[in-house]
């Protein structure tokens, strides 16, 4: 029996969620009294693999193959399913990133594994594995009992703490067969400067109150905070911001340390998507806006006046 932590790397660098996955998988392995193997897939990734020992991996299995250079669900599923069998995996922990979710789903079907998608907590009691996960965009939290063997927990990015817990982390290179490769990689395009909403520690969002596509003020505040920029659905529907910026039940569910809502009234779908943020700030000219009922700190006022002042204050404080 073992626990597998599936690492996610992009172009030879681990994604932040990987450290969360390995840390959480270590806790699960300890609760089950078993070993933890981290699995790194990619091409030319052997050199980075050993780092995962620092977060509690007893060993790191490396699936290195040109066909695994890009994360594509089918070959990744083929390789991981094979490893899960050979390692008698009891639990697989995967990061619920965009591609991680798809991988977890295909693996669950392949292995007939009980899957908890996008979990925010994992509990092990008497050998039983359960997970807490939001449903209805965060309007409800479900406690899901997982059966079958193995079980898969796909953990929400930003939800699990990263814990250093050095173990051996010896690297073992595996012979792998990614399969026939029915999906052909064409291209990948990245906006390198962009902080991803689901991974961000701080988010500054703008809504209908922005009045147009000029987000300079929101971006200015985001810059001093090192924050990602989000938007409400109405701002996206107006065409002011890209679809990928939408926070809410039909967009992205986020849980940063700090969420600053500028000119967002707080429709129920938006509130569901950001209510698990640690600290919420709302700036809105309407004192009756529902967003204030969820906000730890609210300022009633004109965002065009308030936001630049807040930006300046933070600059001063940060020196």
């Amino acid at each position: 029996m073992s626990v597998l932590a599936i690492a996610e790397q992009r172009d030879g660098t681990f994604r932040k969620v990987t450290y969360e996955v390995v840390s959480e998988a270590r806790r699960v392995a300890d609760s089950l009294g078993t070993d933890l193997a981290a699995v790194v897939l990619g091409s030319g990734v052997e050199a980075i693999a050993g780092e995962l020992g620092k977060y509690g991996a007893d060993k790191v299995l490396v699936a290195d193959h040109p066909a695994l250079a890009e994360q594509i669900t089918e070959p990744y599923t083929n390789v991981i399913a094979d490893i899960a069998g050979k390692q008698s995996a009891e639990v697989l922990v995967i990061g619920a990133s965009s591609q991680g979710k798809d991988l977890a789903a295909r693996l669950a079907a392949r292995l007939n594994a009980g899957l908890a998608m996008d979990c925010v907590a994992v509990t092990v009691e008497g050998g039983n594995v359960a997970a807490t996960r939001p449903m209805y965009g965060g309007k409800v939290l479900a406690e899901v009992a997982l059966n079958g063997s193995p079980k898969i927990v796909a953990v929400r990015p930003n939800a699990m703490s990263i814990t250093e817990n050095p173990k051996d982390g010896s690297v073992e290179k595996l012979d792998v067969d990614p399969g026939e490769g029915r999906l052909r990689f064409v291209e990948k395009k990245l906006e390198t400067e962009k902080v991803e909403l689901t991974e961000a520690d701080v988010i500054v969002s703008g809504g209908r109150g922005m009045g147009g596509s000029d987000y300079t003020l929101v971006e200015g505040l985001a810059e001093v905070l090192g924050a990602a920029v989000g938007a409400s659905r109405s701002a996206v529907d107006e065409g002011w911001r890209p679809h990928s910026d939408q926070v809410g039940q039909t967009g992205k569910t986020v849980s940063p340390n700090l969420y600053v809502a500028c000119g967002i009234s707080g429709a129920i779908q938006h509130l569901a998507g950001m209510s698990s943020s640690k600290v919420i700030v709302a700036i809105n000219k309407d004192p009756e806006a529902p967003i204030f009922s969820k906000a730890d700190y609210g300022i009633v006022g004109d965002l065009f006046e308030i936001v630049p002042l807040v930006t300046e204050e933070i600059k001063k404080r940060k020196g």
């Binding site: 594509i72 591609q99 029915r182 999906l183 052909r184 990689f185 395009k189 906006e191 991803e196």
Partner: peptide, 11 residues
């Protein structure tokens, strides 16, 4: 869509 960008695949 993936975090921070897009990937194009063909099949």
């Amino acid at each position: 869509t993936i975090e921070g960008g897009t990937v194009t695949l063909e099949a």
